[in-house]
Design a binder for these strands. Structure first.
Length: 253
DNA sequence: AACGGAACCTGAAAGC
DNA sequence: TGCTTTCAGGTTCCGT
C-alpha cells in the first residue's frame, strides 16, 4: 500500500480522531507494537505525517505508525467487529480506529518524545518542497544508482519504489545510471515529476476511498509487458537494490 | 564503509 | 481444477 500519497490519505482518515480522548487501546502483535508509555486518557491533538511515518501528537505522549507494505488505518465505530488482519485498535469517544496489516511489516510505537526513525527522516516533498540543489549535491556524493538514492528516506522522505519508477520515467532518466551522472537539469525534471505524481496519486486515492472509480496515475509501474506509453518502445523489468524496477529501454537515457 | 542478498510475513496472481 | 511458484508500494540485518 503505502508510499507518501497513500500515507497522506490515511492521515486524513485519522484526522477523525482529532480532539478525542483515548479510552482504550488494544494491541496484541508484539512484532508490530512497542508501547513505551500509556496513552489511555490522553487527548489527540494533531495528526501528522512525514514521509511514510504517521505521528499522532497526544497530551504528553506521541504515537507513531509506519504502515510497512500492507498496513492501513480505518476509522469506524466501537461496535464494528474486528477487521480481517486487525492488529491494533484505538478507541476514542465516538470512534474506533483499526490498524490492519496482513504481512506485519508495519510498526506502532507509543513514546514520550520523537523516536529516532522519525528524526532521521529527510524533508517531505509535500510539506517542505524539494530542494533541488540539495538533491543534486547528494546525488553527486553517492555511489549508487539514481533510483536507489532517490528512495533514500534521509534524502526525501516518502519516495518509495513506485514513485521512483514513475518519476524517473517522467523525467526520462534511466534508473540504472549512477547518481553521480545526474545533471542539474535532470534533477529539476525528477523533482517536477515527483510533485506531479504525488499530487495525482493523492487525488486518485481519495477518489478510491470515496468509492469512486479512478484511473491509475501510474504509467509504467506493473506494466512491464506493455509497450512504452510515450514512445512505443520496449519496457523492461529488472531488479535494482532488491526492488523490482520498470523502465523504457528506448526513451529513458 | 559499501554492497548484494536474505530475512521478516502473508496473500494474490500467474504459471504449470 | 489444483498445486506450485513468483511477486508485492518497506525496512533491517548479515556476511563479504
Amino acid at each position: 500500500m503505502p508510499e507518501l500519497p497513500e500515507v497522506e490519505v490515511v492521515r486524513r482518515e485519522l484526522l477523525k480522531l482529532r480532539g478525542g480522548r483515548i479510552q482504550r487501546i488494544e494491541a496484541n502483535d508484539a512484532r508490530i507494537v512497542d508501547q513505551r508509555v500509556g496513552i489511555v486518557g490522553r487527548r489527540v491533538r494533531e495528526v501528522g505525517r512525514r514521509g511514510k511515518w504517521l505521528r499522532l501528537a497526544l497530551d504528553g505522549a506521541i504515537v507513531f505508525s509506519h504502515l510497512g507494505m500492507t498496513g492501513d488505518w480505518i476509522v469506524t465505530t466501537h461496535d464494528a467487529p474486528p477487521l480481517r488482519f486487525e492488529r491494533v485498535r484505538i478507541d476514542v469517544e465516538k470512534r474506533s480506529a483499526r490498524y490492519t496489516d496482513p504481512r506485519r511489516f508495519g510498526r506502532f510505537v507509543t513514546a514520550k518524545d520523537d523516536i529516532d526513525a522519525w528524526r532521521e527522516l529527510g524533508p517531505d516533498p509535500l510539506l517542505d518542497g524539494i530542494d533541488e540543489a540539495h538533491v543534486l549535491g547528494v546525488m553527486k556524493k553517492r555511489r549508487r544508482t539514481v533510483k536507489e538514492v532517490l528512495m533514500d528516506q534521509t534524502l526525501l522522505a516518502g519516495v518509495g519504489n513506485i514513485l521512483a519508477i514513475e518519476a524517473l520515467f517522467e523525467a526520462r532518466v534511466d534508473p540504472r545510471r549512477s547518481s553521480r551522472s545526474v545533471t542539474k537539469r535532470e534533477v529539476h525534471a525528477i523533482a517536477r515529476a515527483l510533485r506531479s505524481i504525488i499530487r495525482r496519486t493523492i487525488a486518485h486515492d481519495e477518489r478510491l476511498v470515496a468509492g469512486k472509480r479512478s484511473r491509475s496515475p501510474f504509467r509504467i509501474y506493473g506494466r512491464a509487458k506493455d509497450p512504452c506509453p510515450r514512445c512505443g518502445g520496449k519496457l523492461r523489468q529488472i531488479v535494482l537494490g532488491g526492488r523490482g524496477t520498470t523502465f523504457c529501454t528506448s526513451c529513458q537515457v
